[in-house]
């Protein structure tokens, strides 16, 4: 095992938007399974991934499920540490106040430590 992996939160970085292929769903699946296995999980929304937190999402026109129902289930899996890259939010004209799921903003200064303190790190 790499250094003290057991004591660190598992980090899933989500950088793809809802309905943009299966990246977001497959990333969230890793988080849910890790949590079900008893790992402490941190989710970090970054880049287009911050769009996952926007209110008002629906299923796709062909019946694609979307990821908003999964985000509603996070608390049930004890995934409570949601972080969002503040610059990615600002670049998209979003503020934490309007997000449908509450997430702690991470400043550019804080971002490297969020990533460096976690293990393992999955980037979707």
């Amino acid at each position: 095992m790499s250094d003290d992996t057991a004591d660190r939160p598992l980090l899933v970085i989500l950088r793809h938007a809802p309905h943009d292929g299966s990246w977001l769903r497959e990333g969230l699946d890793v988080a849910l399974v890790a949590a079900a296995f008893g790992r402490t999980v941190t989710l970090l929304f970054m880049g287009d991934g911050v769009e996952a937190l926007r209110p008002g999402q629906t299923a796709g026109p062909l019946g694609q499920k979307g990821t908003h129902p999964t985000l509603d289930m996070l608390a049930m899996y004890d995934i409570e540490d949601l972080r969002v890259d503040a610059i990615s939010l600002a670049e998209r004209g979003l503020s934490t106040a309007e997000l449908q799921w509450s997430a702690t903003p991470v400043t550019a200064e804080q971002l490297p430590a969020v990533i460096a303190s976690a293990a393992p790190v999955f980037n979707f």
Binding site: S2, T5, V30, F37, R39, A119, P120, N123
Partner: peptide, 18 residues
């Protein structure tokens, strides 16, 4: 295999490279 084995691989191996 299940996704659990991906999580486990990330924990039990010395290095994981994607």
């Amino acid at each position: 295999a299940g996704i659990g084995q991906l999580v486990e691989a990330g924990i039990t191996h010395d290095r994981m490279v994607t």
